Amino acid sequence: MSSTAAPGAEGGLRTRQGGAPHRSAGAAVRPRPRRSRRGAGTLLGIVLVAPLILLMLLVIGFPLVNTVLLSFQDQGVVGTPSSFVGLRTYQAILGDSALWESLRRSGVWLVGNLVVQTVLAMATALLLTRVGRWSKAARTWVLLPWVIPTVAVAVIWQWLTNSNYGLLAKGLGVLGLDGVQFFADPDWAMPTLILMNSWHWFPLGTVIIFGALQTIPGEVYEAAKVDGVNAWQMFWHITLPLLQPVLFALGLVGTLWSFNIIDSIYLVTRGGPSGASTTAPVMIYDTAFKAFRASEAAAMSVAAIVLLGILAWLYIRFAKPEEV
């Protein structure tokens, strides 16, 4: 009885007998696919992350939802009976010029801290990259302002700026600026607070930028020196572009962080003099715990959250470097 033969791989033959295919002894047999372990890995990841998610929902989510609900109520002291008023609280605060003025001051505070801290951190980090005994020692004590408690920072700067015996006041007196009331003058209060807060927090940016500088290969600078590039050109065309991802992240986190700072301001001026340093967080605090208008403070908080969200989106949209 004849059989039909068909050519197979490696010259082998596959025979068909009665229409049923038959593999030759040398033909490769495809292994059965094994069960994927991706599902088990995903489940393990969910189990490991779930406690953190639950903690964030408890610590952040619940207060946030409670604040939003409170903003639709008419409540004075927190915990007292209240009634639902809808959007009337938002209409009241958005029509208050004091809120918009506090947001303007918050903008000045935010931009001032961002610029001063970035310049100080960048300059200090570049100085720390120099090879030498003093540079290595400075890498340790440059963190000193960062570890000092905010209360101590407020006391130190009140002493430095005292018009009678403060070192800063005496130094300006030599330049002909006698009797400057740094925290008591509406024109000087906000700039002095920005300088004080920047002095407190710029070491954090210094550490981050210094770490990023260590990742830049030294061969890049050596090649630039061979080509006759000066120090300023190397900073502008090599260092700064390579630091863009780090500066972007630092600027985003620093912006959100600086906006919500209240302790540095409240410990020194409490929003004064004459409201010159009353930023949005200070106004929210005073509204809730001094004026006892909890619903209005909650509505201001929600408006500030929305504003910060918009600012963060705009920052990411227009300042995001290509490498991120």
Rank of each mutant, 00 (worst) to 15 (best):
V116R: 09
G79S: 09
V229N: 01
P191I: 09
L168V: 15
V49D: 08
D185N: 08
V306I: 06
N197C: 09
P245W: 01
V151S: 02
I148W: 01
E10Y: 14
G211H: 07
T279C: 06
S198Y: 06
E10G: 15
I284P: 03
P241A: 13
S295E: 07
F318C: 00
V77I: 13
W141M: 02
Q117L: 08
V47S: 10
P33T: 10
G179F: 04
G218W: 15
N162A: 11
M122A: 13
E323N: 08
V119S: 07
Y266L: 09
Q117Y: 02
A123G: 13
T42H: 13
F292N: 02
L256A: 12
G107M: 01
V115N: 05
P7S: 14
T140L: 14
A5V: 15
Q233V: 13
G18H: 12
V153M: 03
A303T: 12
A312H: 03
A291L: 13
A231K: 11
I194A: 05
G228Y: 09
S277R: 01
Q158L: 09
G309M: 00
V77D: 06
L87C: 00
F72L: 10
L64E: 01
R88D: 12
P81K: 11
L57W: 07
T206H: 00
A291P: 01
P149F: 09
G166F: 15
T129Q: 15
N113V: 02
L87V: 08
V142K: 03
